[in-house]
Design a binder for these strands. Sequence first.
DNA 1: CGTTTCATTTACGTTAACGTCAACTACAGT
DNA 2: ACTGTAGTTGACGTTAACGTAAATGAAACG
Lengths: 139, 139
Amino acid sequence: MTNAQPDVLTIREMCEAYDVTPRTLRFYEAKELLFPIRQGTRRLFGRRDRARLVLILRGKRFGFSLEDIRQLLDMYHTEGSNQAQLEKTLDLGRARLAQMQAQYAELEHAITDLMRQLTDGEHLLAGKRRANEDNAIRD
Amino acid sequence: MTNAQPDVLTIREMCEAYDVTPRTLRFYEAKELLFPIRQGTRRLFGRRDRARLVLILRGKRFGFSLEDIRQLLDMYHTEGSNQAQLEKTLDLGRARLAQMQAQYAELEHAITDLMRQLTDGEHLLAGKRRANEDNAIRD
DNA sequence: CGTTTCATTTACGTTAACGTCAACTACAGT
DNA sequence: ACTGTAGTTGACGTTAACGTAAATGAAACG
């Protein structure tokens, strides 16, 4: 069972698969968020890089900076790291988890809030519609 | 019941209450996110502006841009707007609500994901600790 | 009335996260 | 050998969201 699939994507394939530009992928490499292998001069993105990219894009949607994300990404290949480094990474992960849980709670609140405003607005709109009909009758 | 409390804050008071800088508040005014009244040359922020500021800061934490937020803020003083404008605002609000609900779901997923990585990492760390003890015995 | 103490306007600086352009290079097909 | 078609590396440009500094004005205090 020698897992012989190539399983690497070119930069174009990555862009289409994850809806990003080449510039973005090169930028992420420069910032050490991704580590594509080189076949000659070209980049090839393996499964590890794709998993990382998913986490990057996800983190961005939650409002985290790339630097925030970069530090956290170590969480996903802790295998080779030493004890001290691992502890630091775990601390960082726990802190991030707390942030996300807080954000989760706040997001729930914001959602119910917005829903209330929406129904209020819809009632207001219904009122205006009736008013318009009344005017039409009088014309 | 003539509600005679002044109920306005100076820029400093605002900064301390909401942990922002004066620059930020002036910037938000320039971008038409806030509309402080003027007493002579100075700004005074009333209840409406404070409510808006809360929503602004909240929106930012969820990764929305100030321009995104500005458009949505109309949701919270729909009283005077006309029918067409109100419909547009409501559409925008519904779209935003959908985004936030999606984000909510994704955030939940991300949280369980991160928790799993954390426990994995902690087990790994425990293993390294035991290995270290074994070494100590042999020394 | 002079001097701190805030606040204001104007303007230029800064950082993050890319966009855009120019000038190569590597290879594939004809 | 010529022509595309990706891909690459600089290098500079851009936008958002403020920071920072300078000059001015108003207000309160002794």
